[in-house]
Design a protein around this nucleic acid. Sequence first.
DNA 1: GCTAATTGGTTCACGATCGGCTCAGAAAGA
DNA 2: TCTTTCTGAGCCGATCGTGAACCAATTAGC
Lengths: 230, 230
Amino acid sequence: MPRLVASDVARTLRERIMSGDWADRRVPPERALAAELGVARNTVRRAMRLLSADGAITRHVGRGTFVVTAPPAGPDVDGTDDLAGTIARMEGASPADIMEIRLLLEPAAAAFAATDASIGDLAAVEAAHREAVAADDMPGFETWDAEFHHRIFACARNELLREFHALVRVLRNRAPWFDMKKRSFSETRRLAYCQEHGAILAALLDRDPEGARGAMHAHLKTVETNILRR
Amino acid sequence: MPRLVASDVARTLRERIMSGDWADRRVPPERALAAELGVARNTVRRAMRLLSADGAITRHVGRGTFVVTAPPAGPDVDGTDDLAGTIARMEGASPADIMEIRLLLEPAAAAFAATDASIGDLAAVEAAHREAVAADDMPGFETWDAEFHHRIFACARNELLREFHALVRVLRNRAPWFDMKKRSFSETRRLAYCQEHGAILAALLDRDPEGARGAMHAHLKTVETNILRR
DNA sequence: GCTAATTGGTTCACGATCGGCTCAGAAAGA
DNA sequence: TCTTTCTGAGCCGATCGTGAACCAATTAGC
């Protein structure tokens, strides 16, 4: 097996950057790092290239390598489209509206996932399901429940759909959602959710788009009744 | 029938992927697997080919074989919202992905609109329709076409849905969409669009949710064929 | 100001590893 | 017998890590 040392080196360098070593922003020279890590300079150079591609460091011939502190994110100056405003208005979305959107997006995503998902994707969904079943406290279950839903979106080959759900997920973590979830949480409901998740997962593993769509729809209907007390 | 060892091997490899071995995404080299399973390398290769065709693994000469997992992108488990990242990733959405989303949202919005819209809302939709019919140049029609669709969303009583469509609308004005629309524009197509818009509007005025949903779906299918050249 | 040391950038050769490919022969059904 | 499948072997090309040399820009010391 090739040893893939470069990515390991990149990881340790990242950790050092994060941990605040080199707070003066100065990174030791390649040759020194190579000696210290017991690795060839070319290998260090590859790792550096990864970091540089991420924008984590800047390099100058003759001067050295430096940690980038200023966030590379230039807030879009163009401002032509009112994206920020759109997002801001989304923040005020009501739980009922959010549920309506989820009922629109998630069954479709489940159907896509049933046809598009790779084995690895499904393994990830299954792992999230197992974690959710194992979790017995409310925050733990909440995390893995969200992860379960998100990984289903990740199966679908539509990036935009994935990002839309990321947006919904953010909204779900805002008030007044979080409080409502907390109030409506109970062990019996958690078990019911796990069972419904299991049905969804089974349909995905069967590669049954309509089954997945139906199972997801049923699950969300349950959630809706619980959350909105209908 | 011959022994079909290859598919057996493929099955056991699938099981190992699902069981979470190789969680680091690295699959042992063919030669190692062949030795371990007591089978020829060519047989392992056939099995690998099956998995690769499924999209379960990716393979690179000189590097090795890796399990395909859901892209780590997306809202990380660390809980940060990363709205900016979400928006940034949306910008790169492909026309095909956007069409898929539109096909998901807009028929539903039309159905909602048929039941929820006020008289004034419908008058606004009708006005946009008339303007689109009257416009004979590409930018003018484009504007009123977008406005027509947007006003239908405005009819729905779901603010979040409205904002989601605002997002889609922003993306539609980005490259490479705009170019594709421009290329696909023609007078006959404009007339076809106007006619389909008329059908949607008629269903809305009839307060016929399913009719509106169907008309919108048919319209978007037309757009899809024109834009994506299918 | 000039020189030498430092530092990143580039290139090469080498060996090891790994997937891609081909071929001849054995084995097992039809 | 004929076809399909598996086996075993060999060769190719790609990637990676190593080690080394040399270049170019910058800095420090004189």
